[in-house]
């Protein structure tokens, strides 16, 4: 009898750290089933570490710190249960109607599931809110209509097609696309809000660097991000290790998406010191700069530039530069 008892598998007798190591091998669905077995397992199977790992594995390229910060707000709202702050559907404002919030950072379509104990489990509740498509989270979408750029927007995941819907702020929050693939979206790379100037250090930039620069045409709208490269000064003859461009007080930014024919649009000269938003006098406002360190991100831009619709547009421009200027 004694022996029989000892040979039992006693899962709950395992120290917590070991149990967690076992549970790491389970899928989200398997964790849910385990968590229904008893109250101890419910707690162990709902831990943030386990679920953050699943979020990273599934949505790592689109979900990061910026989304976590938004989710904190929704969790706090659900816990406060403050009916003044929570709209009927549990979110701040709506996509249409009276509250086309410029500062709407994210949107929860239905907070009903947060009313129970799930709100105690930060990552797990985030996982299910994203999986169900009910949470519109901040991210960025590569788009090429007139220009190739990266927009700020809100994404909703569609688990059936493994793709996204996106909304963009432009007065209201218009739906700009459905079935958007993974190659067209990314997590917001900086924590700077989309309407704020990204603080940047231009003195670190040198020829050959790939950068992204904030761009907008009106101070009332969000910034987009444009890809550009840092080039040598026009006065610079040396293109090797002895080039003095990085010592200069100015930095030359070049947008490859403009044809060389429109050189006044293609090149931008910025003063390094005390850099603020730059108005180029042609209706273009340039904000902060972030240097791209990841080769993967550089390759993404390159592959987007290589796409057929953009090449067609470029060819057009080479024949009629005025078309491009009027397009801004």
């Amino acid at each position: 009898m004694e022996n029989e008892k000892r040979s039992h598998i006693c899962l709950l007798d395992l120290p917590e750290s070991h149990l967690d190591c076992v549970l790491k091998h389970l899928s989200p669905q398997e964790l849910c089933i385990m968590s229904e077995a008893c109250s101890v397992l419910r707690k162990r199977c709902s831990g943030d570490d386990l679920w953050e790992e699943h979020i990273k594995r599934k949505w790592g390229p689109v979900i990061g710190e910026v989304v976590y910060n938004e989710w904190k707000w929704h969790i706090a709202s659900a816990k406060e249960d403050n009916t003044l702050r929570i709209y009927q559907n549990g979110s701040l404002g709506t996509f249409s109607g009276d509250w086309p919030f410029l500062s709407l950072g994210s949107y929860l379509d239905d907070s009903e599931m947060l009313r129970g104990s799930l709100s105690n489990y930060f990552m797990k509740s985030l996982y299910f809110s994203v999986e169900s498509g009910k949470f519109w989270f901040p991210a960025q979408i590569y788009r090429a209509n007139r220009f190739l750029c990266c927009h700020h927007g809100l994404l909703s995941y569609d688990s059936e097609t493994d793709s996204f819907q996106a909304r963009k702020q432009s007065g209201g929050w218009e739906l700009i696309g459905k079935s958007i693939g993974w190659d067209k979206v990314r997590a917001t790379p900086v924590e700077t809000p989309p309407n704020a100037l990204h603080v940047s250090h231009l003195s670190n930039l040198k020829p050959g660097d790939h950068i992204e620069i904030q761009f907008r045409t009106s101070r009332q709208t969000f910034y987009d991000w444009w890809h550009a490269t840092i080039e040598h000064l026009e006065t610079c003859n040396e293109h090797g290790n002895h080039c003095g461009c990085d010592q200069s007080e100015v930095v030359v930014v070049e947008f490859k998406q403009y044809s060389p024919v429109v050189s006044q649009m293609r090149r931008l000269v910025l003063t390094k010191n005390n850099y603020q938003e730059h108005d180029d006098g042609m209706g273009r406002l340039f904000g902060g700069i972030r240097k791209i360190h990841s080769q993967q991100q550089i390759d993404t831009w390159k592959s987007l530039f290589a796409q057929p619709y953009l090449r067609t547009y470029h060819n057009l421009l080479e024949f009629d530069p005025s078309l491009f200027i009027s397009a801004t």
């Binding site: 899962l11 709950l12 669905q29 849910c32 968590s35 397992l41 419910r42």
Partner: peptide
């Protein structure tokens, strides 16, 4: 299934029926 898990690992169900219902609602698709 949940009941098989309980059997294999000798786990006693300590949830009230309300708690169990709530769990089912929280785990859509499971």
């Amino acid at each position: 299934t949940v009941s098989q898990i309980r059997k294999i690992f000798h786990i006693k169900n300590d949830f009230s029926s309300e708690e169990q219902e709530q769990l089912r609602r929280q785990h859509p698709g499971c």
